[in-house]
Structure formats: C-alpha cells, structure tokens
Simulated assay, not measured.
Amino acid sequence: MPTEPDADVRLDFPLADGVARRGDAERAGILDAPGFGKHFTDHMARAVWTPDGWGEDAVVAHAPLVLSPAAAVLHYAQEIFEGLKAYRHEDGSVWAFRPEANARRFARSARRLALPVLPESAFLRSIEQLVAADLDWVPTGGENSLYLRPFMFASESFLGVRPAKEVTYLCIASPAGAYFGDGEIQPVSIWLSQEYTRAAPGGTGAAKCGGNYAASLQAQAEAAAHGCDQVAFLDAVESRWVEELGGMNLFFVLDDGTLVTPELTGTILEGVTRTSVLQIARDLGHEVEERRVDVAEWRDGCASGRVREVFACGTAAVVTPVGALVEPGSRAVPGDGGTGEVTAAIRRRLTDVQLGRAEDVHGWMHRLV
C-alpha cells in the first residue's frame, strides 16, 4: 500500500455525458429549505485505486452504488471521509473554505487506515469539477452553503484482514441551510460521558473515519435521553482529561480573555475549524493555550467564574456556544449560559470570511467557480 501519493499522477475528473438533471422547479423547492444532509445534487466525483495506481476518474451521476456483499469495507470498516463547505459570494463566485487543509487531513487519515493517499491536487480537482457541474445547487443567502463530502472506502470483494487492493474515492454534495435556521444562535447542553470513550492512545482518534463516529452514537443516545444536545468524551486512560464532542472540538474562554482548547494527543481530531479559531482568536488579541484540560477545571471554573464561556466548533455548526455541562445530579453553567461576547465575535469573524463579507487575510478561501 503506497503511503505517499504518486507525484506524476493527474486526475482530471471530466464530466460524463448524459447525466439526467432535475428540473428548475424541483431544485428550487429543495433549495428553499434544504436542511442538512437530506438532499443531494445531480453528480458525484469518482476515482478508483488498484495496485496499478489511480484511474477511472470522472464526474458521474449521483446514483446508488453496486457493491459485492463481500466488499471489504462492510466487514473491516476500512474507510475515511472529509467534510467541507462551498459558499456563494455576492458576485456569484463560489469558494471553499481551506480545502487544502481537508486534503492534507484526508491524506493523514488514509495513512492511518492503510488506504492509498489521494494527491492533494486530485482532491481539489474533484471538488472543483463537481461544483462546476452542479453550480445551480449552490444556495444563496445567509449562511447557506453546499456541503461537500469526499470519502474513500475499500471496495475490493475479499474476506481477509489486510489492506484492500481496490479502493473507491467519491465526493458527493448536499445543499445545506444555516445551522441555526432562524438566525438566532442557541447554546447547546453537553452530557459528560463517563462510561464510553471515543478513542484510545494508539487508536484512530486523530483520523476522520466512520468507526470513531459509530463509537460515539451510544453515548450520544445517552445524552439525548438526559435531554442534552451533544456528548463530551474524556480520555480513555484516566477518565479525567476533556477531549472533544462526538463531532466537534471544544474551547474554553477564561476570565482574563485567554482561550484554551484540549491539546492534540493523537486521540483528538485536528479540526480545520479548530485551527482557524486559534488564528482568529490571536487576530482578535487573545492569548491561546493548547493544553490538557481537567474536567474538574471545567466544573469548578464555571462555579468560580474563571470559565466565562465554552463553545464547540466544527464544519457543520461553525461555532456553537455551550450553555451547560450536565452530569448525574449536577449542571455546570459558564457565565449566564448564553452566547458570550468572545464566542459571538469569533463566530462572526469566521463566517464573514467564509461568506466573503470580510477580507481573507490568511488566504483561507479557495475559488471553485
């Protein structure tokens, strides 16, 4: 299995002929209230890897897959994915937020899951070609976007525990409405999981693979049963150190304005939004710390006022205030439990860059069309 991309490979993802497109009226109805992950565009990008290298690249019809029941992914979960968004700016152009960072993380995940590394140029080209083919599906207005889901899985028909010798790469697209549909940011409540862990040292916590999310589902169900929106995980060794939510990184705003986030120890996914928040916080004049965070610091800091704000961040929600940490018999609330000033300022700066309302001083936006 190659651990590095072939520098000579070039995938162009040409548009296939004869793909049926939905009518203007049907598409407009979907775009009027897209939700999240409910509807999909007319096309998808596709490429296939074998020991001979990458090939069969094209933008084809979004359609059901034909897989053997013996496809390796169904038995050994050898797969990875990414998530990013494309935004339409006022002049009609369409831009992706930091797709190069997603491409690099996709490569890191591939190495960890013993999958072939897709060249960054091919990752970007697949997105560009897919968005160009489905340009009419990119929503307008507010924080609406086109969500892009690149993923790769072991498609070889083989029952044996080894890296697959056929791997399929796909990228699909889904129009997405604003995470907070009414425009009013709502703080979320977080259940602290004390029975389940998301990842262990030496495992796949730093890779973006489906198994990590599957491992969070029972804990998420437990959170919902306790009336909470999300679940937070502690480390697998001491059950003491705060790691992340089921799909978002965490930040704490202290009373002196310092931002603290759990350090990357190999069990936490390095979020693209997380990295961006760290830079924006510095731009806004805040000190930032990446270090271990004891859950007692979260609890006690809320009680003493040391922890003024808590927020989570990720591609889907961008930045979401955390209103409470909930455990059996206790509830830790930062500040007044609402959206803090620092949280709101960071979220506003980030979305302004993404939507083209503020100068992109860090060169984060990549023009697609």
Rank of each mutant, 00 (worst) to 15 (best):
E90V: 15
T50S: 07
L113Q: 06
V9P: 05
H39Y: 15
I127E: 11
A28K: 04
D12Q: 13
M44L: 13
F81T: 08
T50V: 05
A101H: 12
A7W: 04
G23K: 00
A58F: 00
A71N: 07
F81A: 09
V9A: 14
D8F: 09
A28G: 10
P69Y: 03
D17V: 13
V9K: 10
R27P: 08
D12P: 11
A20E: 14
R27Q: 13
A103K: 03
L118Y: 08
V59C: 02
L65S: 01
L31I: 01
D12M: 11
E82L: 15
V94S: 00
A114R: 07
V19K: 01
F36L: 13
L118W: 07
I127K: 00
A96L: 09
R108A: 15
K85Y: 04
V19C: 05
E90S: 14
L65D: 04
H89P: 13
P116F: 09
P69T: 02
F106A: 00
A71Y: 03
R21W: 09
S68I: 10
G55M: 08
E100Y: 02
L31A: 00
H89T: 12
H39P: 05
F40I: 08
A122K: 00
A25E: 15
S109A: 10
Y76W: 02
A96E: 03
V66M: 14
A45I: 10
A7V: 15
S109I: 12
A107D: 02
L113I: 11
V19I: 12
E128M: 09
H39N: 10
Q78W: 02
E56I: 07
L11E: 00
Q129H: 02
P99T: 05
A25F: 03
L115K: 01
W49S: 01
R112F: 05
F81V: 11
A47C: 06
H43R: 09
I127L: 15
R105I: 04
A96M: 06
D57M: 09
R111Y: 09
